[in-house]
Design a binder for these strands. Structure first.
Lengths: 331, 331
DNA sequence: ATCTCTTGAGAGAGCGCTCTCTCCACATCC
DNA sequence: GGATGTGGAGAGAGCGCTCTCTCAAGAGAT
């Protein structure tokens, strides 16, 4: 009652195993009538190649590890970024017949597990989502002889091709938008500074304020809604006269809006708010959130292309995608 | 420069391949000093077992398919349910050393792909997330000789063990809460009726209204924010005097709140709103959303246990988990 | 001192597939 | 007609591992 093997198919079709294999793998050097016979046998027996046997000899697995290296606090906060990346990566990879092996590497022990797994040659390549500077995984994986690409520029300088959006430029555009609409005291809620996106978006904010001779007013959050809420309260204490705030991601912006509301500030009349990411929820805040959109799905698609390219000796240059200001009501 | 094999380990440790295998697999019938020698060789060579070779002979793969069978519209809407399930399933499965192979089965062709893959014996078991009645996948997978469990009761009657929450009871509790707070005209925004959760939550709503001799006022959404917004507008047209609404999930409730705001209704003074799911965003709506919580992570953990149990001939009885009313400000 | 029993280790047969090598048959050319 | 070339099919050697079977050696029983 076990699954039919290639041997069985060959026997039924009256050919050798090698010929059956040729048909299965679409080689052209098989006479049409023999091909038909084999295909009929395959259908009748419901034959499906055994991938273990196949990859044992080919040394390929046709699967890609999607490694999400983030502490649980962040992964389980409902940041839609992760799910969007995971889903679009899945779609893209399935389109080219690669399996997606999802690995969460949140703790030190799971790091070891991931490393062992990747080193074990279970996958042909790795897509890494790791955003914390302290993360040893990018460096560790780059040492293995498996192609690795990263979603977002790795926080430590390491030789891994990546796809990222223009965080600095996006933040600059956001702050310039606030300036252009006449805001004078522009604060920011920065993301965690051990993350590239946190750093770069703060840099962009500072660049513009410096160029226009304004003082920067900074509070630091950790990209969660809750931290945005807390940071906003702190900013209001630090500078009650602020009239605008650039929040380094939308999730924190949602929290910030809540704190502003609780403090009795009207948005955008008293305080203008610009977020970053353009998550779905940004359309549903009160008021709807002005934000910087970056194309997560295109970014993921580019990442997949980058990885597949590496398999065939393609280029390993980083890809930087532009961001776009989406003006809604909050600024 | 290729990866070391068990043969190499054995040679280095001066033992046979069989003995090295015993050590790798933790068998106890190996003398301590020999075990040490083998382990040293493993360390020195950086040996990692080749899983393809292993599963070729053991007929196990130690990986589990997580099949998400939903149309892209829903999967890519930012419903946090999916990501929470995916993530907690990952965590649970990794804890028992199973790999997670993520498969999105949104189109007919990807259905075929998934079926072929599962039939191909690439995985030891399947966790299925499929909620649409028209979905042929549950039935198809249940016919294969691979253990399958389902997150949520399958919409078509099919012999697959599942874990679900008490949708009917939860909806009843929500509506009873509205009644108890003195609301008279209680409407509902139902989920799609081809989904069990949509059906059951509507049933719960109707049960309570029937028992208290009230008229039901129903609009149907599709569990997205947008549809909640539209459905709410329609309800207000149908019955401008309604004073409460039970929304079948939080995402739609967020949309409904927006429509209520735009229509100038105060929540909860004019209209009370109760949602379902207790997603993270429910805490951040204006006002914060009263909702039915169901423990997604526990549910997922139970699902993993159910599947692992099947491997060892455990019970295949459905597991139904209770829901809990979380009272915030919207009702 | 001989026999049985247990423990520990090795030999070797596969698991199901791919792929090189070999060979055969037939067409083509001088 | 014989030498050469070419397309199509088979034989068979592994890929790296597990696991049964076998056997050696020492412990214990008679």
């Amino acid at each position: 009652m076990r699954r039919p093997t290639l041997e069985a198919v060959a026997a039924r079709a009256g050919v050798s195993r090698a010929t059956a294999s040729r048909v299965v793998n679409g080689q052209t050097t098989v006479a049409p009538h023999i091909r038909d016979a084999v295909e009929r046998a395959i259908d009748e027996l419901g034959y499906v190649p055994n991938s273990a046997a196949r990859s044992l000899v080919t040394q390929r697995t046709d699967s890609i590890a999607l490694v999400v290296s983030e502490p649980p606090t962040r992964v389980f906060s409902e940041d839609p970024l992760f799910s969007t990346v995971i889903r679009s990566a899945s779609v893209e990879l399935e389109a080219v017949n690669k399996q997606v092996v999802l690995m969460l590497a949140s703790s030190a022990e799971s790091h070891a597990r991931v490393e062992r797994y990747i080193a074990g040659g279970h996958v042909d390549g790795v897509m890494l989502i790791s955003m914390h500077g302290a993360d040893p995984l990018p460096a560790a994986l780059s040492r293995l002889r498996v192609p690795v690409v990263s979603y977002g520029r790795p926080a430590v300088p390491v030789d891994i091709p990546f796809v990222d959006n223009d965080n600095v430029g996006g933040a600059e555009a956001a702050v310039r938008h606030l300036l252009a609409s006449g805001r004078r005291r522009i604060a920011t809620i920065a993301g965690p500074l051990d993350m590239i996106a946190g750093q770069d978006r703060l840099t962009g904010y500072r660049n513009v304020l410096r160029d226009s001779d304004r003082r920067s007013i900074v509070a630091v959050g950790d990209f969660t809604r809750e931290s945005g809420s807390i940071a906003m309260r702190q900013l209001l204490r630090d500078d009650p006269a602020l009239d605008a705030v650039f929040v380094a991601n939308d999730l924190m912006a949602v929290g910030a809006l809540q704190s502003l509301r609780q403090a009795g500030r009207r948005v955008p009349e008293d305080v203008a708010v610009v977020g970053f990411d353009d998550i779905d929820a940004a359309k549903y805040t009160e008021p709807p959130l002005t934000t910087m959109r970056h194309p997560v799905m295109e970014q993921t698609a580019a990442l997949v292309r980058l990885l597949l390219g590496l398999f065939s000796g393609g280029p390993s240059d980083p890809v930087i995608l532009p961001t776009e200001l989406i003006v809604r009501e909050s600024a």
